[in-house]
């Protein structure tokens, strides 16, 4: 396996690639989920609950893809993890706030 990684003369050792892959797969999945929750709340009042959820789900694959690409484009694995965690926390908090707002409104 190490051959596969050494082949490209990465500045970071192979575990960094492994770490990034985990970040892309799991961090990206959580991000896809949190973004779909966020969109589900954001559009709740304008297009109705089910369609809002649905739009969030349709876009989740695009979010996932962008997240994975981003993870592999930043300069280090820890930066990738940090960015993903920050963004996820932000989305969850924003979703929670919107839920409060929507809850009051309805």
């Amino acid at each position: 396996m190490t051959y596969l990684f050494n082949q490209f003369n990465l500045s970071s050792p192979s575990w960094a690639v492994f770490s990034r892959s985990l970040a892309a797969i799991f961090g990206g999945y959580v991000l896809a989920t949190s973004s779909s929750l966020f969109i589900g709340q954001l559009l709740l009042n304008s297009v109705g609950k089910y369609q809002a959820i649905h739009i969030g789900l349709l876009l989740s694959f695009i979010v996932y893809a962008c997240a994975a690409m981003w993870v592999f484009s930043v300069s280090s694995a820890s930066k990738a993890w940090g960015g993903l965690i920050k963004l996820n926390v932000f989305l969850f908090v924003a979703t929670w706030l919107l839920m409060q707002l929507n809850g009051v409104a309805s």
């Binding site: 989920t33 929750l37 589900g40 609950k49």
Partner: peptide, 20 residues
């Protein structure tokens, strides 16, 4: 995306959403 739908809907709402 079952995680997302499970967080946002219960079983009845889910099947209603599918019907929509």
């Amino acid at each position: 995306m079952a995680l997302s739908t499970n967080l946002q809907t219960n079983e009845n709402e889910y099947s209603e959403m599918r019907k929509e």
